[in-house]
Amino acid sequence: MAPSQTFVALGSGFASASAWAAMAWGLAFFAAIYVLLCGGNWLLTRHLLPALRIGRRIDPEPLRDGQIRYELLLSALSILIFGIGTILPWAFLQLGWARLASDPGPVQVAVEMLALLVWNDIHFYANHRLLHTRWLRRFHVQHHRSLVTTPFSTYSFHPLEAILLGNVILLPMLLHDFSFAALLSLPVMSLLLNNLGHSNYDFAPAAGHDHWLSASRRHHLHHTRYHGNYGFLFNFMDGWFGTRLPEEPPPTTAGTAPE
């Protein structure tokens, strides 16, 4: 079976599954990509790349006591919320509010993936700015307890933040009949690239401040300065709304706390 048809079959199976099966599938999916991508990024940035002398660690400060355990516990809660939340796109399909593309070609899938990637950046920026308002910052502060970030910080959210960020797929599904492959790619791309931002590792020190590989430097500035650099992978939203932090030597996080 061709890959495109395999995803079509998977999409049909998901749409026809029971509600409990859809949530169980979502829980397994989000847990699997978290373990593979976050664990893989930890091995890459803490062992393989330093051994090969590729890139460099951004902030040399040690992690706070119990940080990894704290991040893993919050991440497990976020994965549970994302898994249960799978019921919403499933319900959209059941109710006929959304449909899956029946015969998507590779070009269509690629264009949809790119569109969802850009939408993810817009959605993330809007919700991230909201989480930094005085009304919601008490929820977002849990994420900012990771002053020195790790790949496991990526899903380290308060439940409210997990709900806000986890609804990224809903509006696009109402507006367009996406391929199941493109819909599946969104959480994978989101987690993979969010790992880049939270890796505390400069993969390309020679790259410019606005280069996508510099997302780790930009997001490190966000965690040390708290205000500014609210974007995800790209920098265009921060540029449009005047929240772009200027490039500067990487500061340490000692003594830094949300304001």
Score class of each variant (00 low, 15 high):
S153H: 10
A91H: 06
L147I: 15
Y230R: 12
T149N: 06
S12G: 14
H143I: 01
M113L: 03
F14Y: 09
T150G: 04
L192V: 06
E248Y: 10
L184Y: 09
N195W: 00
H143C: 00
H132Y: 07
H220S: 03
L130S: 00
L191Q: 12
L48G: 10
N235E: 12
A257E: 11
D210S: 15
E61P: 06
L213R: 05
P246M: 10
S185D: 08
R69A: 15
P249Y: 10
L196V: 00
A181Y: 06
A257K: 12
C38N: 10
M1Y: 14
R53H: 14
L95C: 04
L184Q: 11
F124C: 05
I84P: 03
H47C: 15
P172L: 01
P246C: 09
A98P: 00
N229P: 12
D103M: 14
P3N: 12
L95H: 03
H144E: 04
L164A: 11
L193W: 05
P246T: 07
A162P: 03
L130H: 02
N127R: 10
I58C: 07
H176L: 09
G11R: 00
A28C: 07
S18W: 02
H227M: 14
F178M: 07
F241L: 07
H211Y: 12
L184F: 10
G255M: 13
P3A: 13
V168T: 12
S153E: 09
N127L: 15
N229D: 12
L164Y: 12
Q67E: 00
F241E: 03
H227P: 05
P251G: 01
R217G: 00
G239M: 14
P151Y: 02
L171M: 07
F180A: 07
M173V: 00
A31I: 08
Y155Q: 06
V188Q: 01
C38H: 09
A19C: 09
S146V: 04
A162M: 08
A257V: 15
G239P: 06
L100I: 13
F29L: 03
S75G: 08
D238R: 03
Y201W: 09
G255V: 14
I33K: 11
L73R: 12
A19D: 08
A17E: 01
A51E: 15
M23C: 11
L193E: 03
A182L: 05
W97Y: 04
G242K: 01
H128D: 02
L95F: 03
V107T: 10
T6G: 14
S156K: 04
A17T: 01
A19R: 06
R137A: 12
T133P: 03
L147T: 14
G231K: 00
T86I: 07
